[in-house]
Simulated scan of single mutants.
Amino acid sequence: MPRFPEKAVIITGSSYGIGRSAALLFAQEGASVTITGRNSERLQETRQLLLKSGVPEKNVNLVVADVTEQNGQDQLIKTTLDKFGKIDILVNNAGAAIADDTGAIGTDQTMDTYHRTMQLNLQAVIEMTKKAKPHLIATKGEIVNVSSIVAGPQAQPEFVYYAIAKAALDQYTRSTAIDLIQYGVRVNSVSPGVVATGFVGAMGMDNQASQKFYEFMSSRKECIPARVAGHPDDIAYIILFLADRKMSSYIIGQSIVADGGSTLVMGMQADMKSLTGN
C-alpha cells in the first residue's frame, strides 16, 4: 500500500537534487505533488522523471516560479488548491549559499548578499508557512524544512550569512512546531551535511571543481567519517519519514542530522593519529 495516498504535497526547489528526489519518492508513494523552481528546463526534467516512473500526469503540478517573490508563492498555493483541492504537506526545500557578486567571503560579503541569502533561506520559508497555514490546519498536515549542519554550533567563517540563515531556520522550526501543534500541524526539519547535488555549483563551482570537492570531502575522515558524500535520496527518505504521521507522529520541532558523522568530529582530531603514534 502507498504511504501517501490522496495527499497533496508542495516541494519548493524541486527542479534538482534533494527536492527532485523527494518529489519522485512522494509521487511513487501515491501523493499528488507540486514541483517548482525557477529553471523551467530542469523542472521539466523532474516532471518527466516522475511520469516515466509511472506517476499519473494528474498527480503532477508543475509551477515555474521564484519562491522568494509574492506572486510565486501565491501561484504555488493557488495552483495546488485548484488542481488537488487541498494541501497536506509543505516541504520548504529551496535554499542556497549565495556567492557574493564581488567574490568576497566572510565579513567582507556585501549586505546585498546578506539580504538575498536571508530572503531565500528564511523569509521564503516564513512566507510559505504563513500562506499554507490555514490549509494545513484544515488537513492536520505536516511541514518539513530543509536546514543544514552549517546552522551550528561550529563556526562557518566563509559563508557566515548562510549559516545565520539556517540557524534562524532551526529556531523558526522549533517555534512554529509549538505554535502549530495545537492545531494538529507538525513541523520538523532535516539538516544535511555534504550531499552531492548541484548545491556547490550554485556557489560558483563548475562540474569538474564540484566533483573534486565531493571526492576530497569523501576521502578525508575528518570531513566525512563515513567516507562518502550523501546522495539526494538519503535526505529525501528522511523528509518522507518526517512527513509520515504514522512513522513519526511523536516527533515535534526536531531536526534530524544526516551528515555521515561530520558534526561528530573536531578539527583538532585531524592529526591526532600522527601525534599519538596510533
Rank of each mutant, 00 (worst) to 15 (best):
E45I: 04
D179Q: 10
Y114N: 02
R47N: 09
A22T: 06
A27T: 00
F216T: 15
I224Y: 04
D74A: 12
T34R: 06
T117Q: 06
T107P: 04
G198M: 14
D170M: 08
F159H: 07
A196M: 11
A104C: 10
A132N: 08
I77T: 03
R116M: 07
D271W: 13
I224C: 08
L90A: 03
M203E: 12
A8D: 09
V194L: 05
Q48C: 09
I235L: 08
A8R: 00
A209L: 13
V194Q: 01
G103N: 04
A27S: 07
Q48M: 10
T176V: 07
T46R: 08
A202Y: 11
V228G: 09
V64D: 10
P232Q: 03
M205S: 14
A236G: 00
S15G: 13
I126E: 12
A132L: 02
G193D: 06
Y16R: 15
G193H: 03
S210Y: 04
N145V: 01
I251M: 10
D112H: 00
K7Q: 13
V228P: 07
A104M: 05
Q269P: 12
E127Y: 12
D170A: 00
E45H: 11
K246D: 15
E158F: 11
K52Q: 09
I235Y: 08
S210T: 11
R42S: 13
S15T: 05
Q119E: 14
S189G: 10
V257L: 01
V64C: 09
M118V: 05
S53G: 04
S40D: 15
N39R: 12
V194W: 02
A229L: 02
H231M: 13
A31S: 08
L25P: 00
Y183S: 15
D112M: 08
T139G: 05
D66H: 06
F199V: 07
D101N: 13
S210D: 11
N71S: 14
Y161M: 01
M205W: 10
S255D: 10
S175F: 03
V195E: 04
E45Q: 13
Y114W: 05
K131Y: 04
E29Q: 14
I89T: 01
L25Y: 03
D108H: 08
A226M: 06
T80D: 05
A124W: 03
A209K: 15
K133E: 15
I143N: 05
Y214D: 02
S147G: 00
Q254A: 15
D66N: 03
G37D: 02
V146R: 03
N188H: 04
G152D: 08
E142F: 10
K78C: 11
E215W: 00
L242G: 00
Q123K: 13
